[in-house]
Design a protein around this nucleic acid. Structure first.
Lengths: 342, 342
DNA sequence: TTGTAGGCGTTATCAA
DNA sequence: TTGATAACGCCTACAA
């Protein structure tokens, strides 16, 4: 015999299915005589009754699932965020459906369609670009969502991001204390809030320390990747401007620098110091171990999960945005500036 | 107005809902006049009709979801497998629900319950232990599943694993060619097929090359972790037996060796060579870059997805197991054996 | 080839 | 407090 249904339980308890439903659902249990309730619950246990969430969904039009839109799960940034989200969602009875967009808007659109057709009750989105028509449109359609890591311009949607500006300040401060005065920035894509905010914070940090802000020391990467990081560093190097330190847009870009160091025989941190951003796993095993800004990824997930649950349960709350505090992890890729050759 | 239903489409096309259903479903389209079909399809497009998979599930008792049981998504091994699975499942109309067990059997049981209550149509399981009562029980209950990475004893369930034995052979062969004769193995947990198979293959490879198989050169790790790897290597070192190379159970264990090298001032590969297993990302950025056995993780996912689909669509096929070929990636952590000090 | 009717398992509404 | 009834959106015998 197959799995017992509510009817079976009701029958076993000698009540109507509707009553059994009420007794089994904590929300409505108070509507039923506590003796009957007990009886129903006991019957349910005896039969090993498991409610069928699909039938429930059909009736309530609540799927108990949310969608998680990532660029690429393979980026070590995301798994801890996913775990954080699930740690909050699971106990609340929700499951996450994960999709990867590979930064392809067409694919993203298609994947979001899939999620919506599966009736997700909300979206956690890690792929936001500053201009993002799809998100705009979803928002207008009243789709509940929370942005993580990145934000979108002019869109009143809650977001959970690291305090990127503060992270860059920490990095610059650290380098300045080590005596660096000529610092380059390999910025991330300027289509993302992360890329823009970090670059802007970099400039203002330089000015804050009274350093000059040489345009030759800023290169923008088209992707958050090693290849782009390498390309960007080569470009600075080939430009001929002097510098003794690099603030990389993120760890992958910093790893690209390592490739160029090897390629050109540059000593890090002897000749050039590097700071990354994110604190990916295993960075301490590199040579030199990478100094970087640690982002509380798990926490980002937790907060995002909470915020989405909140907006599901209290749809009228006005959206808040959260900036999570960051810390600098000093390792071996940064050292005192070499004696000035000027 | 909310999302259009099948009825709306039918009405728009001037047919009955049943006809619309038949027209929209490729399986049954041939039952309907091709003109009517065209009309229905056009109406569906005009309205932006999306079938409600929940309603469909309730009727067909097919959820279109499968469960993916992982120890921990945060282990870089798994994301590529997940992507591989989704690459196959997505186009087939399935979505994956991912759960993490943290290697805790109680948590695993609870998570699997959740998955089953969500009516997943099958399970892909990466947490198999050799003795695994839960899997045994699920199998007896007729739950469709595919094992990845690891297998289970005495259970007639399809599995997709790397050809672990061959991988170890490749590693040992490589070391022998470099002149190593005293080789240690830091084995993974012997509760997993992976740990056992690799250890067994290690012994037989040594014998195959006529080397002696000193028990002092084998230590078993309780977990696949850096900490355990470090502990195991210290144990070999402290045992005093001579050796010039290590075959680590996996990359994390190898990373633990790096910690011990740093701690004790041992030169790798000058004094000791190390080979890992898995080829995690960024291993080429370590110092020295880690020589390791590359496992086709994405492909494992693809094959697992395919096999699960197969067993869903043709339940009577007898289970097959697949061993995927491996290759050795030679990097900087292995070098010629130092001149014998004997 | 198309329509009718019934039901998948649950919950919401109404009446008793 | 409980029961009867209908409905969520879809699919599928069966009948026409």
């Amino acid at each position: 015999m197959s799995t017992p249904t509510l009817r079976d339980v009701a029958e076993a308890a000698g009540v109507h299915a509707a009553t059994a439903s009420r007794a089994l659902n904590p929300e409505t249990r108070r509507l039923v005589n506590s003796d009957t309730a007990r009886r129903v619950i006991k019957a349910a246990e005896a039969l090993g009754y498991q409610p069928n969430p699909i039938a429930r969904s059909l009736k309530t039009s609540k799927s108990g699932t949310i969608g998680l839109v990532l660029p690429d799960l393979t980026n070590p940034l995301f798994p801890p965020i996913v775990r954080g989200i699930e740690d909050v969602l699971g106990p609340a009875g929700f499951s996450a459906l994960i999709v990867n967009t590979d930064n392809d808007p067409a694919r993203e659109q298609q994947q979001v369609m899939t999620l919506r057709s599966r009736q997700v009750e909300g979206l956690i989105v890690a792929t936001a670009r500053l201009e993002h028509p799809l998100l705009q449109q979803l928002h207008e359609q009243g789709v509940r969502m929370v942005l993580v890591n990145r934000r979108t311009d002019d869109l009143d949607v809650p977001s959970i991001t690291p305090d990127d500006a503060r992270g860059v300040e920490l990095a610059v401060e650290h380098l300045v204390k080590l005596g660096h005065t000529r610092i380059a920035h390999l910025a991330g894509p300027q289509s993302t809030s992360t890329g823009v905010v970090r670059a802007r914070a970099f400039h203002s940090a330089l000015r804050g320390h009274g350093l000059d802000d040489d345009p030759a020391l800023l290169v923008t990467c088209d992707y958050w990747s090693e290849e782009e990081g390498a390309r960007a560093l080569r470009q600075v190097l080939d430009g001929g401007a002097e510098f003794t330190a690099v603030v990389a847009g993120n760890d992958l870009i910093a790893l690209g620098c390592y490739d160029v160091f090897a390629e050109r025989g540059i000593d890090c941190p002897g000749e050039v110091s590097v700071v990354g951003f994110n604190d990916m796993p295993f960075l301490d095993k590199l040579r030199p171990p990478l100094t970087t800004v640690a982002v509380p990824h798990h926490q980002i997930g937790v907060e995002a999960g909470r915020m989405l649950l909140e907006s599901i349960h209290e749809p009228d709350r006005s959206p808040r945005s959260v900036f999570l505090p960051l810390s600098l992890v000093v390792r071996g890729s940064t050292a005192a500036a070499p004696a000035s050759r000027a």
